[in-house]
């Protein structure tokens, strides 16, 4: 039997974490409970964050949105402000897991689990998200790519929690794209994924571009080489193919039970070509 604490205020939370420093902290539990059942983890006690109102929902703070760590994916994807400003995140969270997983799982959990396949992560990277870390004496903000250190590893000390993510509202992207390659259409872990936000001029030239890949390296992969190859160019198959050649150095895919490394390498580049659909006027 394990003790499960469900603090309702931050004060209660800090007290519990001080009393039980070896607790596993979770919100939806969709990752943690799988690991406990598998025997990968055996925490002494559990602390659940889902009842802390401070960590719930999306707050509009002027130029920025704050998404509480315990906000479920299903709540996130219907939030008006997120739909308006962070379309790539909505696209990514909409294909995460399955309806039951999206009802339970949270954005904070997806970040802290730090799986290379985490569906919200490439979207958060291209949107330059910052995470807010809280502890009993205060809080700090750090960029998500500094927070996530490696597969399953984040820069979170004992007594600290991930409180949420900060995202700038008006980023000026007029093309938001997320593609996930899984072994089936739902309830599938990404074999490879790609988030892309672009600002295209009226004539279809790439003014700015941010792209990120999931499941093809220890953490989310970004490539300035690819982005630079796109900037200033008219979107076309040639340009996208050429940009893809810059990806080879950036990614380091592995072979696992879901797919081989070569396949991941091939589709990482191939997914770029999908952006050509936008050049052809396909609306997404």
């Amino acid at each position: 039997m394990r003790q499960v604490s469900l603090p309702r205020t931050l004060g209660e939370l800090w007290a519990v974490l001080q009393r039980q420093p070896h607790s596993a902290v979770y919100a939806g539990g969709t990752d943690l409970f799988v690991k406990i059942r598998d025997g990968q983890l055996n925490p002494e006690s559990l602390v659940c964050l889902e009842r802390l109102t401070e960590l719930q929902g999306v707050q509009d703070n002027g130029d920025e949105l704050f998404i509480g760590a315990a906000t479920t994916h299903s709540k996130l994807i219907v939030a008006e402000s997120v739909r308006e400003h962070l379309r790539v995140l909505v696209k990514a969270a909409s294909v995460l897991g399955s309806p039951p997983i999206r009802h339970m799982g949270t954005i904070g959990g997806n970040i802290v689990t730090a799986s290379p396949a985490g569906d919200t992560l490439p979207a958060l990277y291209v949107l330059s998200a910052e995470v807010e870390i809280r502890h009993c004496e205060g809080s700090k903000r750090i960029p998500i790519n500094e927070f996530i250190i490696g597969p399953g590893t984040v820069d979170l000390a004992k007594g600290e929690i991930l409180a949420g993510v900060w995202l700038r509202k008006h980023q000026g992207w007029n093309l938001s794209h997320y593609e996930k390659i899984g072994r089936r259409k739902a309830q599938a872990c990404a074999i490879a994924s790609m988030a892309a936000v672009l600002e295209l001029t009226e004539t279809g030239k790439v003014k700015r571009a941010r792209l990120a890949w999931g499941s093809v390296g220890p953490t989310v992969i970004t490539s300035e080489g690819v982005e630079n190859a796109l900037i200033g160019e008219q979107l076309s198959l040639e340009v996208l193919k050429n940009a893809g050649t810059m990806l080879d150095k950036a990614i380091s895919p592995i072979y696992d039970i879901r797919a081989g490394a070569d396949y991941r390498r091939m589709v990482s580049k191939a997914m770029l070509l999908r952006l050509n659909d936008y050049a052809c006027g396909t609306t997404y």
């Binding site: 399955s98 089936r184 259409k185």
Partner: peptide, 14 residues
């Protein structure tokens, strides 16, 4: 593959 996260049976969407 000893579970349904790696042994992939179709879902309703498939």
């Amino acid at each position: 593959t000893t579970g349904f996260s790696t042994y992939i049976i179709p879902t309703a969407s498939d």
